[in-house]
Design a protein around this nucleic acid. Sequence first.
DNA 1: TATTGTTATACTCTATAACTATA
DNA 2: TATAGTTATAGAGTATAACAATA
Lengths: 143, 143
Amino acid sequence: MSNPAFRPTDRSLPIALLRARETVMAPIRDMLQASGLTEQKWRVLRVLDERGAQEQTALAGAACLLLPSLTRILRVMEADGLCARVADANDGRKSIVSLTDAGRQILLDHAAESAAIFTALETQFGRAKMEKLLDLLEELNRC
Amino acid sequence: MSNPAFRPTDRSLPIALLRARETVMAPIRDMLQASGLTEQKWRVLRVLDERGAQEQTALAGAACLLLPSLTRILRVMEADGLCARVADANDGRKSIVSLTDAGRQILLDHAAESAAIFTALETQFGRAKMEKLLDLLEELNRC
DNA sequence: TATTGTTATACTCTATAACTATA
DNA sequence: TATAGTTATAGAGTATAACAATA
């Protein structure tokens, strides 16, 4: 019945990645929802925390967002006091986005729960396999 | 500068999965766009091809879509002649969705290019690593 | 009463192009 | 001319609840 030209969807990398993401995100979405954070805002916070203040093109790339989406998201996040934009002193076209204390606090507020969610999954899935999976994904992302 | 409570985003499973998906989907999106297919419609076609005619709740789960989204998507796909819905003979609440010949043809039209995209990535990434990655994702999806 | 699917609604993200300001 | 970011717009998906029909 099924078309032999295609791999089983379980062995289709795009579909397998999407299903894996749904599995992993479910508890995180529950956590974020309680704070009125979307997945996208959460990624922006995480990237800013990790990589520090940066221009929007870099931030958009790291957070897997298009620049027009980021513009809108940052407008809201700035209004909510989670981040700030300042003009780049060396290049007037750029603006540098940074976390505010409130933004950092939101991350701290979720740190314990976020770690617990990861640990639970790691325990269930197996620590060695989790490391191997992350290694492979990291390497794929460099392709 | 960065918060030690969080893993590097490269080692955050949700973010790593999303970045991997962006990497993998880019050429597929280009392919689909030429046929006016969205990623979601493509997943519906793939799942119907693989698992045969089925009710919508099952289809939505396998294609990672919510039921209201699927209702809308199927309305369009049915109007485009890609699939058909018939009432379940045994349970009047259900309708069974199936591929039409036109739907199967669309899949066939993209089979060669789809396979080539996968093969190119597999070659670049490494066949053994690709298999290992798919094994791990498949296992994670059973968590 | 529970389940299947549809409809309604509000919100959000995506994708593209056009535009402004600066380099 | 090219780049950084914004705005505009159309299209699409998400999430929830309410609803109808059926079990």
